[in-house]
Design a protein around this nucleic acid. Structure first.
Lengths: 222, 222, 222, 222
DNA sequence: TATGAATGAGCGTTCATTCAT
DNA sequence: GATGAATGAACGCTCATTCAT
């Protein structure tokens, strides 16, 4: 019926016999793409295997079930994001500058990896137990960074706060960022730095200061 | 699941042949419950019909397809939430007090209607176009309230801000609340007012003030 | 939900309490219309009841199941067609004139009652046993008329033929007419008489005569 | 049902994992059988898959939806019938002899493939647009053959007729054959050649000649 | 009498998953 | 190692039919 539809477009004839690591990367790339575009349930293993250019049995052999595949996507993308942010923060700086750098990097990363973020955040949060659990792990790592940072900043004040007390604030900060990204998608004319600045103004200064005309701005030439 | 919700009027004695409006409510109640527990796709019309105690054909006759049913759930729950919040705000008060009342009511409502909130927020945001559209409509209404409120507050300041400029801050505020709810679920020992207070401290005062030991608290006995 | 959609368009307020015969006619009219438009299986009892302006339980009370309803449609429409044709034939005339009159009337009837014909012929012939049986009954009555007519015509010839021998020819004649109607639908510019003439030319004269330029035409002014 | 149709090659020893082309043939065979026996709508994909000895998903993978499957049946059977007839006609012969051979072959084919014919004709003609369209295509090909044949025959006569003028006659001829087959089914004692002869007598000679005792018969020993 | 309300049963379709080669 | 072939199980949806009022 369809006689000559074989042979992948990319010159690789047959493309067989690749090392396992490469295959796994191909599969995960395709999976992230398809999960991001369709959502977890509507994404079919058929489409993922076609996108990856690898037959379904291979996917099952390498990554297990659809759930495990999705979890693996989650872990990889989360690690990438955390790494990107971690590299940007310099513990020598003041707390507001550290937060600022982290936010800068966060929005820059999301800007460049929209699909990753879609998989990571929106899809994972809405599916049941195994995934939201994984997402929670990632989130708590991000929140841990933030609350530790803030805790250190209060150490010398009159009312030092434990990192545990600061956890809900970190959570709220993360949520604020996630929500702002939705707004950003509909207002793409703003820059990543502009978005980070908004978060600083809201969470460092607060509406009280904003209303009074006091805003936050980064220190002299970064 | 919710033991004393409506209490079958006639002690389960074949209370069939109810008027349409009643059936529609039963169906929507069941649908919200099942969608919240399973998520949109995994929720099956069979389970919804069993939960509602009504056969599937009636669901289709009254509410249409699964998509339409979900949309209707969304609309009802969103309207309820918005109403609950709207009733709590008194335009005579100062902006921080208004925000405070709104947040109080919001967390109180969510506390009492966890399943509604799950349907409304997490499920709707992760499914495709027809639903995220509906959710956006609801969200923008909430954000409109907030940004208008803040805009009025800056009118007399040196740097008045338009409600449009304040929109991203409103979006971030909403996201912060949503995220805090996740944290709350894992720390249920806190009260709704405590949660609202945290949001006030973050968004009205900001980390800057928090670190310096300045916090927000409601006006004298309300 | 839809508060004021009652009250039939036709002034009859409520239209209740009509004699049974009238109800049955309404139902059959609607059924023929819907069966003709949709086909037997795709036609739903819901649509029939809506078209008739009568609730479904009434249909079941008066005409029985969907199958029985369709059979009743068949019987009524077949009787009408046979009657129309029977009235046109005058046993005093010659056989070709009788055939001609019958065909005239047949095409005239079909022209005016397309939906009836659709129900009668195309739908009935393709559904299973109970219906094709009914259709066969009708057909054999029509074929009986024709073959009797032809048999009488051969009585005085050298090779008289029994009406039984002529039956297959009658069947073929009926089939030719049915098929011509399909062609007619796509060439509606032709008149009913023109169609009848074609049948006469084919079945009375035959290709042999046609090719030789000999055609049939009705007797002097009818 | 048909005992000696293909004879499972390996005596039913789990002969799974067959190439696609073979499976497609099996599916189409089963589909034709079931569609013919039950009709289009009452035929269920379940029964087709059981009859074919193949699970439903394979049917969908190979042939698409129920509609597409039916269309494919139509195309295959129509092509077979047209081929069978086309092979029988010899353009060197006179027009009546050509028609005679074609009819001979037609009745012989239908005699051997009753189910095919049932699918082709009765089912396709009564279902909606996509199918009657396909049937019309097939029919017009058959009619084209006939009317061209007749047109050539009149070329040298006093009143030459275009193939377009002859189209309705061809249509009627086809309908006559179809209807005769119904009669044949109830009188199976007649031979295929006998049936073909009846058509010749009706359409080549006409009732006029028949009544007068003039009949058609094939040329000397064929 | 007349009907809105109600359902059992079934259909077309799809998908994650696994054999057999 | 790699894949085309294959399926059990389920899902969304509809329909003919009947009950209770």
């Amino acid at each position: 019926m369809q006689p000559d539809q074989h042979s992948r477009p990319t010159g690789r004839t047959k493309s067989r016999r690749l090392p396992r690591a490469v295959r796994e990367r191909q599969i995960l790339d395709a999976a992230v793409e398809v999960f991001a575009e369709r959502g977890f349930h509507p994404a079919s293993m058929d489409e993922i295997s076609e996108t990856a250019g690898i037959s379904k049995p291979m996917i099952y052999a390498y990554l297990g079930s659809k759930d495990e595949l999705f979890l693996e996507c989650l872990r990889r993308e989360a690690a990438r994001l955390i790494d990107a942010i971690g590299e940007a923060v310099d513990p020598e700086l003041g707390p507001d500058e550290q937060l600022w750098r982290g936010l800068q990097q966060f929005f820059a990363y999301v800007n460049e990896h929209r699909t990753s973020w879609a998989v990571l955040h929106r899809q994972a949060s809405s599916q049941g137990e195994p995934f939201s659990q994984e997402l929670a792990t990632f989130r708590s790592r991000a929140m841990g960074l933030i609350s530790t940072l803030l805790a250190r900043a209060t150490v010398d004040s009159q009312t030092p706060m434990t990192s545990e007390q600061l956890e809900p604030f970190a959570s709220a900060l993360v949520g604020a960022c996630e929500s702002l990204i939705d707004w950003w998608i509909e207002h793409p004319e703003h820059t990543a730095d502009g978005m980070a600045m908004r978060v600083m103004n809201l969470t460092w200064m607060g509406f009280g200061d904003l209303i009074a005309g006091r805003t936050w701005s980064p220190a002299e030439p970064s």
